[in-house]
Design a binder for these strands. Structure first.
Lengths: 248, 248
DNA sequence: CAGTGGTCTAGACCACAAA
DNA sequence: TTGTGGTCTAGACCACTGG
């Protein structure tokens, strides 16, 4: 039986998680069946229940097990057919790839009317809509185009600079009395419009990744919409599900 | 000052998390600045350090804060421009939408040679490659097409039924001596080929979401590749980032 | 050195499920 | 009633950071 090495730099809760994960993958603990109780695991590996729980929490986060109060902790169905895509803001993503980010302001305009898709999302033009669009580049190469629509309150002066560099939710916070606290996003594929294709330097109709984001205030009023189109040859999402390492 | 209500059904660690999140969003704790230390928070809200830590863990998971050993716990830059897409296996996803899943086996074939893209991913044809493809439907409507390539070892009989219903990693485990433990996936947009478009009942060239998945054994040998094409009008990924609820 | 976060322990009470 | 997971406490030791 595997034992916990208390002198290792790998903390016990992590070692135990690796052990249990291994037993699950090797079939000793089978999908649908319960794991030993937290107390039993604690006795078996000479760890406190708190530590056992921390370990189980790690495995639960990874989707390997799930606990049911009063019943037990059960091994989940195997699910390598699962992917998790984290999309940070453009700047963070590109910089993490070691590339240089660039923004180019394409357009800033005041709209009296919202485009139809924005109305469908429940946004109301209040006193008007501020629209702007940017070209997103990585190492000078065009990667994406984004279009933003936000509720607008007059008053504060607008500097082009701001639109070029600041985050959307920041701009909304500054230029309206709204504080966005919730973000809903939808990712899909689409054909590039002639307009967007022109900036992306692709052909109209070429496939692009489309991300549509809606920002809501605490009382669920939509106050900002962002639509992103990414060149599919230069932008993709990746996911990596790996087992816990045994020893570090 | 907000206080912890110990008689509430909402556990203290959660209440505290909501309080801190609120203070961050209202600007009392600013991005880049440190939170009070865990001990201070414990004193202030009359909670044990363990409970404070559980609360901070929750906020860290949500990307609001990050801890640095020896230094402190810092408020992250605001990031509503962030989305997390979880793609479970097709069956789970569709069933969660309350729809009926269907599979139709399109093709099962033994290949002597791997297609070029699979070779590029490092897969070797060993003793041969088993290829199969399925049409994925939701409420009888075609939603996706998938193509699978797996290392093949003769021996066990293959039942068409299996390919129709079992998960890819399960099939690999049964029909080879390989145990996939790691999954890498890439999501992008593409134009549908004539072949796939035909099954999806769309036109060739229409945009589709493409998911490419590679399964690896513990020693990082690729043993299975899955390529999925989804109709962009019937399949999209969603993400919802919301604040913690104050009281439940 | 003092202060920070990271980990662990031993024990307690609760809500829930099943017999 | 017993056993399960969910939460909390009080106290301990460690590793890391910075003065």
């Amino acid at each position: 039986m595997d034992k916990i090495n208390k002198n290792s730099f790998t903390p016990p809760f992590y070692q135990l998680a690796a052990i249990i994960e291994k037993k699950i993958m090797e079939g000793e603990f089978k999908p649908g069946e319960p794991l030993p109780s937290e107390n039993d695991l604690g006795r078996e590996y000479e760890l406190s229940r708190t530590t056992v729980r921390k370990c189980l929490g790690l495995l639960a986060e990874r989707g390997m097990i799930s606990a049911q109060q009063g019943k037990g902790t059960f091994v989940s169905r195997p699910s390598l057919d699962r992917a998790i895509f984290v999309m940070d803001d453009f700047k963070t993503q590109i910089e993490n790839q070691g590339k240089e980010v660039g923004y180019r302001l394409i357009n800033v305009r005041f709209l009296k009317q919202l485009p139809e898709f924005a109305l469908k999302l429940g946004m109301t033009p209040d006193k008007g809509i501020l629209y702007y669009s940017r070209l997103l580049t990585a190492c000078e190469e065009p990667v994406g185009v984004e279009h933003k629509y936000m509720c607008y309150k007059k008053g504060k002066p607008t500097l082009e600079n701001e639109f070029q560099y600041k985050a959307f939710s920041e701009i909304i916070t500054i230029h309206t009395e709204f504080l966005p606290v919730r973000s809903q996003a939808m990712l899909t594929a689409e054909s590039a419009s002639e307009y967007d294709a022109n900036y992306l330097k692709i052909s109209a109709g070429d496939p692009v990744l489309k991300l549509q984001q809606v920002l809501y205030t605490r009382d669920d009023k939509p106050v900002g919409i962002g639509v992103f189109y990414y060149r599919s040859d230069r932008y993709s999402l990746v996911s990596d599900i790996q087992p816990l390492k045994g020893e570090r």
